[in-house]
Nucleic acid binder design. Structure first.
Ligand SMILES: [Mn+2]
Ligand SMILES: [Mn+2]
Ligand SMILES: [Zn+2]
Ligand SMILES: [Zn+2]
Lengths: 158, 158
DNA sequence: AGCCTAATTGAAAATGAATTTCAATTTCCT
DNA sequence: AGGAAATTGAAATTCATTTTCAATTAGGCT
């Protein structure tokens, strides 16, 4: 796994906004701000990727040797509840998290060879999904759409 | 879980065709036809539902007390490989199987209250998915699309 | 600044579905 | 019928996820 640090000042500002949101959430719920939560949230938000708790834990362990896997695991759940992270499970059945507000949305192209994940949003598809739901008098709350196959790099030398 | 037995003679014929396909597959691969595989395939094909190995095993156990869970589990994998079943994992993270040839395809509406699953296929969506893949020079092999929400029955009294 | 209580932490244990192991049994080819 | 190879089913294992629990910490209140 590669954790690409955020670089631009715009990204840094966004991360700090999100960390403020987390603090609000914690205060609101009578929970506490801790050094661990701060570190984990920072590292997670910087990754910008679809990480498992295990992956993020290993990455954090390189810099901090006093933050346990369980706390990383629990903090990711917390970030999810607070609306700063989205939980995803792709075909490998591992639970992953990506920094994404609950109201934002996108779907995924997943390479079956190298595992790379490409994000997309197609408003036409979204609209047609709504129409399908209507057809069945179904009240749609969320949806999941994944396209599996081979990315541009992998499709030739497969 | 309700296992609804197939009723019409057309359905019965279809089931028998599928059981023949299984036999061909077994012979072809140097595998053996057994009473267990026959029973499990029959019961599975009759359900027409999205069953877990556990559910199918419990159902079969009512009639047969000498067929083990492991064999049900393995036979479902086998049916999957032979193209007679499709493996599905929805939001509850349980592996389910449904009788469906590999070339056939549909997507799902899943009720978050009662768990009912409604199937649909929308060719416009399928085409747009292909277009998205093309946009990213991605070679699409399969896709998964699930809409979560509340079914017609559940959306009012929720 | 010190108290106090509730929240947090992290190691270890527990859970539970999925998968593997293995000895006994069965299939089916010759 | 004989025998090699596949199958079966109970039990064991795996592995991600989740829970437990004793020790520690945060932060509101004097
Ligand atoms: Mn994403
Ligand atoms: Mn289906
Ligand atoms: Zn790739
Ligand atoms: Zn429902």
């Amino acid at each position: 796994m590669k954790i690409s640090g955020a670089r631009t000042s715009k990204e840094i500002k966004l991360i700090n906004e999100k960390k403020e949101k987390l603090k609000s959430f914690l205060r609101e719920k009578g929970l506490k701000s801790t050094r661990q939560r701060d570190v984990i949230a920072s590292e997670f938000l910087k990754t910008g990727e679809h990480v498992t708790a295990e992956e993020l834990y290993r990455e954090i362990s390189k810099k901090y040797n006093d933050i346990g896997f369980t706390t990383v695991y629990r903090t990711l759940k917390l970030l999810n509840k607070s609306g700063l992270a989205t939980e995803r499970v792709f075909a490998d059945h591992l639970t992953r998290y990506e920094p994404l507000s609950a109201d934002d949305h996108h779907d995924h192209l997943i390479c079956m060879k190298c595992g790379s994940i490409t994000e997309f949003e197609d408003l036409k598809i979204e609209r047609l999904q709504e129409r399908v739901a209507e057809e069945f008098s179904f009240l749609s709350v969320s949806h999941k759409m994944e396209i599996y196959g081979y990315c541009n790099k992998c499709k030739d030398n497969a």
